[in-house]
Amino acid sequence: MHLAGEIILLIGAIFVFLGALGLLRMPDVYNRIQVGTKAVTLGSIGIIIGVALINPLWWSKLLVILGFILLTSPVSSSAITKAFYRSGIAPWRETEKNKNQDEKEASL
């Protein structure tokens, strides 16, 4: 139980690390949000489950934290992306090109 908990903890930490790496490597804001939200969220879920396995008495509080993170992390990233998009931050060059193409196709 203890060892399984620690292994899941480590996997979660690796996903958080990958999320941060993606935040560093991705070319524009929108892709960074994608990587940041997804990987860091799954990483924190893994860490919460790991802590719950190591210390089973804490499960109820950890369950509340898990539910809260699952519900709010996508909402906050969605809200901030919407704000960026409305304020006219252009997506990465290739995205922009494709979008213009789409608009042309739609108008035709």
Binding site: G22, M26, L42, W92
Partner: peptide, 23 residues
């Protein structure tokens, strides 16, 4: 969620990130 993250990990770790973002 797990499938998404494995896919994402592959993408982040690959040398030339194969992305083609689009709205």
């Amino acid at each position: 969620l797990i499938k998404a993250n494995l896919d994402l990990a592959k993408r982040v770790l690959s040398k030339d990130m194969k992305i083609n973002p689009r709205m």
